[in-house]
Structure formats: structure tokens, C-alpha cells
Design a protein around this nucleic acid. Structure first.
Lengths: 113, 113
DNA sequence: AGTCAAGATAGATGTATGTCGAAACAGGAG
DNA sequence: CTCCTGTTTCGACATACATCTATCTTGACT
């Protein structure tokens, strides 16, 4: 990955094709209901979370959860570590902040339109 | 549908399945390089933009741009109006702000740089 | 009316993606 | 070492999606 996270908000300047491709790849990781919920569960946990505590919250099979976690990890949104039998996941807040900044838009407080 | 735009950031509380589905649908609209660039071009234009000024900036065919604009419109990210021969698009900033707020994450410490 | 141009829609096609069951892998416990 | 449990990887399948060409719609102009 290029490292990313360096662009102005899209309401200030248009993205060049390369930046758009990089941003779209991360949004794609969040563009699935299960993955977005996974991300919110991990991000709101306040620390790390065992896969064994995550999987039962969903209706889909274990391999499917594992697949979605991998997508989130490859997008740089979470990271994980195996400790003994269990695997723990935690969020990567910088990546979330980058996306949030990309989409940020000034309030129409006193002005135009 | 919940009406949208009412949830706490994902780093504060996990999304319920319905909210995750709604959020994922909007992220999916931004999960394509061409659509994300389209969105940034429209959002940074400072007003409305004619399709005829947008299409030449891309390497794909007109119908493809039309298709992507429709996806953005159905996601509530832009809106459009026909005036005479031309069609004009403008951004819906509330929707962008909602996504940005969803992903916002507190800084780990007092920021500075 | 006829013609032209801008955009949108329809249909077709190749590729990507979500899901599963089965199998492999990694560690702990007997 | 052998078994058992938690997690990932593999292979297969059905559906969804991006893109194209061809066609339709809308409005302007002669």
C-alpha cells in the first residue's frame, strides 16, 4: 500500500485517479453489511476482541467471518494476533480517521447555496 | 429503513444489523474508483456541475458514467436536475457528513503537529 | 414537421464477490 | 503421540457488478 491518508477532503479538492482507487479499495472493505458490523464491533470494543466472541453474533458460518476479517485486515482497518488457541483482533484508528477526514464537509453554518 | 443519519460513531457503539446494512449500502456507492472520483469532482465543484463537463474527464463511455451517477443518486449522495439539453448534478452534503461522523474516532492524545 | 445532440435506459457479457462444506493448520490436554 | 477445539484456507457455486453497444427520450433549433 502507498501509505495513504494524505489527501484533502473531497469537498475541497477532487481526487486524482490513483487516490480514488486507493480510497475506493478501503470503502469497498466497509461496503458489506457484515463487514461494517464487524468493524463497528471491533472498533467499539475499546481494545481487542477474540474471534470466538465475534462469530456467535452473526448468522453466517465461521469461514465466512474469517474471510470478512481478512478483507478488513488487508484494507488496513484491523490487525490481529494469535495467542495460543485464540486469535484477537483490534481496530486501526488511523485508517478510520483518514476516511472520516476524506468525507468531512464544512457545515453550511452561515452561507451559500 | 431507519431514515439514516442517526447513529453514534462506530468507535462508540456497535451497529445493529439494520444500521449496518444501510451504512454498507452507502459505502458501496463510494467503493468504486470512478464513483469516488465522480463524488469528489461534484463535491469539490462548489455548486452544480453539468454532465457534459464530467464525462470527458474519464476514460469510460457515457453510459457508464450515467450508470455511476445513478448509483450515487440512489445512495442519496448527489441529486440532479435537467435544464434544457443538459443535466446538472450537485452534492448532498448531509449524507457525506453522516458517513464522516460514523467513522470519526477520537484522537488517542491531545493532537499537535 | 425533421434533425441533431445530450443523457438515460436496456440487454449482453465477463469478472468479482459472498457463501458454504470440507479439509488443513495451530495449539493445548490427556 | 493422539485427540480435540478454534481458526484459516481451499474449491465450488450462485449472484452481483462494471462495462460495452445499441436504442430510446428529451429538448433545441431550422
Amino acid at each position: 500500500m502507498t501509505g495513504g491518508g494524505c489527501c484533502a477532503p473531497i469537498s475541497e479538492a477532487a481526487l486524482d485517479p490513483a487516490a480514488a482507487a486507493e480510497g475506493a479499495a478501503v470503502f469497498k472493505a466497509l461496503a458489506d453489511p457484515i463487514r461494517l458490523r464487524l468493524m463497528s464491533i471491533i472498533a467499539s470494543a475499546g481494545g481487542e476482541l477474540c474471534v470466538c466472541d465475534i462469530t456467535p453474533q452473526f448468522e453466517v458460518s465461521g469461514p465466512t467471518i474469517s474471510h470478512h476479517l481478512r478483507v478488513l485486515r488487508e484494507a488496513g482497518l484491523v490487525d490481529c494476533e494469535r495467542r495460543g488457541t485464540w486469535v484477537y483482533y483490534w481496530p486501526m484508528p488511523d485508517r478510520l480517521r483518514w476516511l472520516s477526514a476524506l468525507l468531512s464537509t464544512p457545515e453550511p453554518s452561515a452561507a451559500s447555496r
